[in-house]
Nucleic acid binder design. Structure first.
Length: 424
RNA sequence: GGAGAGGUGGCUGAGUUGGUCGAAGGCGCUCGAUUGGAAAUCGAGUAGGGGGUGAGUAACUCCCUCAAGGGUUCAAAUCCCUUCCUCUCCGCCA
């Protein structure tokens, strides 16, 4: 959420930013409601001020043993008026709130302006895509052949966009999770967290999934709760409605969770394999930092995510997303894209974003920079560190051999009981 | 699921015959005094949000907030209702 006062004094800038994000419409409604709100508010407050002083007057008269029926009557009438005005104010404020909740974050000045991913900028590449001396297979063919992925039985259990991992496949998934958590906690200084996979509405509003993207979420029937679409939600909301001490920042948090997404509107995209599932595993990185250092922290966070791909020796590239391709809450996003032989292309495996104070303002996460200083909204960052299912898919495809077996990346072998190759 | 207790400022803890209480005291913190420096001691200050005047992250002023929402009343931290949360006991359960 953007600061209403900031919008008020930067109308053109915000409207242009919305345009750059392919969001139609103007801020005319905002301006109208904002003015209305302030005008009603000062009127109400004026009445209240009179009511308060009259009411105190009654108290004084009573104390002296005098009656004050006239004054009481007057205040009673003022109360009625105030009540009516407050109802109107409430209506205006909630309308205003809805508008604010639906305005995306302002892109950082370093973000390329463009309508879609074609405007994204490649920042750097790491590793060489392997050239095969045989016809490489896709993970959705290799997995079932090796009996480590079972799509047919997953459909029986849950439908499309689900997968069952079996045997060494299940082990590999778990190995990747543990490997990621171990690196981020022991080497990069993140605190490991194991949060609930279900959260309340306030959390979803706090990080920006709601109200705008309700159709992408799985809601729990009969309760105001949602399955987490990413650990970013519980991790960032850990400090919702809290005031942190400046000296306690930055906070580095990491968590493994399953992630649940309805994938509304993505019919026909990535229908094969485990690239796009309703449930997938992810190790997430979240930072809560002072405003001054958030862009430095974004670079560091991105490197932290890259490092696990380097350790796995998976070729990837880093892409700076354009204004049209960025997520709603983000001011600047780097995607990490891993080489996928089945796509003959790089495929997103991580998304690292600086949300600045956009989420903190929604979730009311503040900090006191120093003793006696005014409270400020913290800056929040998040990044996949990285997607586990897509990692497994990338390993299967990039490490496949002509006979259909899969070599286990060296760093994962300790997590696999020393296994070097998964064979049929 | 049943029975009971409770939710007050950064923390702790008063305040429940409704009235000047945004809230005593303590701790913590900030500034000052003291000291060669520090501890101890003494003094002062110290909640958050929003609106208005204003060039102002200065100053002044008003409104709101004692878990959340509603109600009673001229007036509610104090009375009533609903919801949420915490704790204790019982039941159930991994």
């Amino acid at each position: 959420m953007l600061d209403a006062r900031m919008i008020r004094s930067n109308l053109e800038k915000v409207e242009q930013a919305m345009k750059n994000r392919n969001m139609a419409g103007t801020l005319d409604n905002f301006v109208r409601l904002d003015e209305q709100r302030r005008s009603i508010l000062s009127q109400v407050e004026e009445r209240k001020s009179f009511r308060n002083s009259d009411s105190q007057e009654i108290g004084k008269l009573k104390k002296q043993g005098m009656e004050a029926e006239d004054l009481k009557q007057k205040v009673r009438e003022a109360g009625q008026e105030i009540k009516q005005m407050e109802e109107k104010l409430k209506a205006v404020e909630s309308e205003l709130q809805q508008i604010l909740y639906n305005i995306p974050n302002l892109p950082h000045e370093s973000v390329p302006v463009g309508a879609d991913e074609s405007a994204n900028q490649e920042i750097r590449r790491w590793g060489e895509p392997r050239s095969f001396d045989f016809e490489p297979q896709a993970h959705w063919d290799l997995g079932p052949q090796l009996d480590i992925l079972d799509f047919e039985r997953a459909a029986k259990l849950s439908g499309t966009r689900f997968v069952v991992y079996k045997g060494w496949g299940a082990k590999l998934e778990r190995a990747v999770i543990n490997f990621y958590l171990d690196i981020h906690t022991s080497k990069h200084g993140y605190q490991e967290v194991f949060p609930p996979f279900m959260v309340n509405r306030e959390c979803m509003v706090g990080t920006g999934q709601l109200p705008k993207f309700a159709e992408d979420m799985f809601k729990i029937e009969g309760r105001d709760m949602y399955l987490v679409p990413t650990a970013e939600v519980p991790l960032t909301n850990l400090y919702r409605e809290e005031i942190l001490e400046g000296r306690d920042l930055p906070l580095y948090l990491t968590a493994y969770t399953a992630c649940f997404r309805a994938e509304a509107g993505s019919h026909g995209r990535d229908t094969r394999g485990i690239i796009r599932q309703h449930q997938f595993n992810k190790v997430e990185l979240v930072k809560i930092v002072p405003a001054e250092s958030s862009y430095e922290e974004l670079e560091k966070l991105t490197r932290d995510a890259e490092e696990v791909l380097q350790a796995l020796e998976l070729p990837y590239r880093v892409v700076l997303l354009s204004t049209g391709d960025m997520g709603f809450s983000s001011a600047k996003t780097y995607d990490l894209e891993v080489w996928m032989p089945s796509y003959q292309d790089y495929k997103e495996i991580s998304s690292c974003s600086n949300c600045e104070d956009f989420q903190a303002r929604r979730a009311n996460i503040r900090y006191r920079p120093g003793p006696g200083e005014k409270l400020r909204f913290a800056h929040t960052l998040n990044g996949s560190g990285v997607a586990v299912g897509r990692t497994v898919a990338a390993i299967i495809e990039n490490y496949q051999q002509a006979d259909g077996s899969i070599v286990i990346p060296e760093v994962l072998r300790p997590y696999m009981g020393g296994l070097e190759v998964i064979e049929g």
